[in-house]
Amino acid sequence: MIWEVFRQEEPGDYHKHCGNVHAPDRDMAKMFAQIQHGRRMKTHSLWVVPQDEVGEVDDQDTAFGGTTDKAYRWATTYNRVDASFAKEVADSEAEQRAAEKKREASSQ
């Protein structure tokens, strides 16, 4: 049985997928994951999740974000202020600009 493994580096971070382990049950999976995925990388916590329990929807199943132009979704479209006064806002805008670029590049 395969268990997908997610590692969290610092308390409060997201658990990020980092690989998997073969193990017959949850306890063995936790035991193996400690060595395989927590030994060399800084680790605060690991999750092990049965692979069968992971639900997936991919771009064959759906058109993520729809197929028509929805440029108005991008908050950057309306942006006329310098966001540097608040780090969260600046970060969020940078993130959106990057995502917008990626999306444009892949649709060409």
């Binding site: 382990v21 193990a23 035991m31 193996f32 060595i35 395989q36 030994r39």
Partner: peptide
């Protein structure tokens, strides 16, 4: 298995 190999090596 690979996992038990790594665990014992560790």
């Amino acid at each position: 298995s690979l996992e038990s190999d790594l665990a014992l090596a560790n």
